[in-house]
């Protein structure tokens, strides 16, 4: 769950950086949004995917053991 909270916080930071470039479309915000912002967003989504897949595998294993 901790990884998922970290993922949510990372996504919020990424969204903030992307929104900054919408309000101030100058070189620094645009470049930061397209590099750091999207990098953080991708990392957060990867973390989410890892947690969800691990949880699904755990549930399957528990179901199999119960049978």
């Amino acid at each position: 769950m901790k990884l998922l909270y970290a993922s949510a916080i990372l996504t919020l930071i990424a969204l903030g950086l992307m929104v900054w470039s919408l309000f101030q479309p100058t070189p620094l915000p645009v470049m930061v949004a397209m590099s750091v912002g999207q990098g953080l967003g991708t990392a957060a989504f990867a973390a989410y995917g890892y947690v969800v897949v691990r949880d699904i595998l755990r549930l399957r294993r528990e179901k199999r053991d119960a049978e």
Partner: peptide
């Protein structure tokens, strides 16, 4: 974490 931020990034990239 996925669909909506990806939408933001896609439209944001175009706007950028």
């Amino acid at each position: 974490i996925g669909v909506l931020p990806i939408g933001t990034a896609t439209t944001g990239n175009y706007v950028g």
